[in-house]
Every structure is written in structure tokens, then in C-alpha cells.
């Protein structure tokens, strides 16, 4: 399983046959392991990395929101965090160490849309004490991919 995870992490979107070739095992074995990983919720799917800065249309705005929360007796932060995770525009929701409790990454069509959402919806969730919103101004690297990668291979075409 460890090898499959490494391969998935480095090369998402491969066919079962390609994965089998690259790991030197049978496609059936890969399928079985992936199935098990899905059932155990280890493998949760794959997602495209898009440079939204270049998409333009629709202004894909992104913000990180630090949220301070009053934990609930017996439930800690889980209840609030689960509620927040249900919101479709919340892309990521993490419990954090440090100066605040929950970190949210959210997307929206405009700064205003996100700001209003935070003010009207997020802050109103029971247990939320405060929020601090940081807007993303420019994406340099997303999910391990540097956005401004050179188009041309500077190694040339042939060397011995």
C-alpha cells in the first residue's frame, strides 16, 4: 500500500494498468488495494490543480480564515468544525495548534462575497468567538506545484 500511495501522490490520474506497470505488480492487485483504501477512507480521490489567477473569468477569490472557537464540553471542536465542513465553499477545514483554533480555506467569486459570508454566516455559527480573514493576492505554489514554471526545458534536446 505504501508504494501505491507514493505513486498516487506523485502521479495522480494514472490508469490501473499504468500503475501496475510502474509498480511491477498486477492490475488486479492494484484494484484490490485501491478498493480497500477507499473503504478505509485512506484514498479519498484526486483533484486537478488549476492556476485560477490565469482563468480570469468569474474571479476565483481565495481566503484563509482563522477562527477562534469556544469548545463544547465532551465534543471539543468537532461539532463546530463539522458544521463548517458542510459549507460547499469551504475547501479546507483544519483544527490548528497555536493562536487560533480552526483554519478555513474558502473560495468565492469576489472579496465581498467572502467577506459577507464570514460576517453573516461563519461568525453566526454557535461557538465561534472571532474570525480573521486573509485574502490570497497571488498564487505562487499550489499543492506542490510552482505556478510560474518555465515552459521550455533548459536542458536542450540532446546530451550524451
Amino acid at each position: 500500500m505504501e508504494k501505491i500511495i507514493k505513486l498516487l501522490d506523485a502521479h495522480p490520474g494514472l490508469s490501473l494498468e499504468d500503475m501496475a506497470t510502474m509498480l511491477g505488480v498486477s492490475a488486479e492487485e492494484i484494484a484490490k488495494t485501491l478498493d480497500r483504501m477507499r473503504k478505509e477512507k485512506i484514498y479519498m480521490g484526486e483533484k486537478a490543480i488549476i492556476n485560477w489567477d490565469l482563468v480570469g473569468e468569474g474571479n476565483h477569490v481565495c481566503a484563509f480564515i482563522d477562527v477562534q472557537v469556544q469548545p463544547k464540553l465532551g465534543k471539543g471542536f468537532d461539532e463546530v468544525a463539522n458544521t463548517m465542513s458542510q459549507i460547499p465553499d469551504v475547501e479546507c477545514c483544519y483544527l490548528m495548534s497555536g493562536g487560533y483554533d480552526i483554519s478555513i480555506k474558502m473560495k468565492g467569486k469576489s472579496f465581498q462575497e467572502i467577506a459577507l459570508f464570514v460576517a453573516r454566516k461563519l461568525s453566526a455559527i454557535e461557538g465561534v468567538i472571532s474570525t480573521t480573514t486573509h485574502f490570497v493576492l497571488k498564487r505562487y505554489k499550489d499543492d506542490g506545484v510552482i505556478m510560474d514554471t518555465p515552459e521550455k526545458d533548459d536542458r536542450g534536446n540532446i546530451s550524451l
Binding site: 536542458r155 536542450g156 534536446n157 546530451s159
Partner: peptide, 20 residues
């Protein structure tokens, strides 16, 4: 042949001997 390959700029190369 090498010179020709180096001059073409829309080549899909599998020709280099160094890490990517």
C-alpha cells in the same frame, strides 16, 4: 544530427543525459 535536434525548438525530446 545533434545540431539538427538542437536547432529545432518544438521537439519532444527523450535525448538528454541529465536529471530533470
Amino acid at each position: 544530427f545533434f545540431d539538427l535536434a538542437e536547432k529545432m525548438d518544438d521537439v519532444i525530446s527523450l535525448g538528454v543525459g541529465e536529471p530533470d
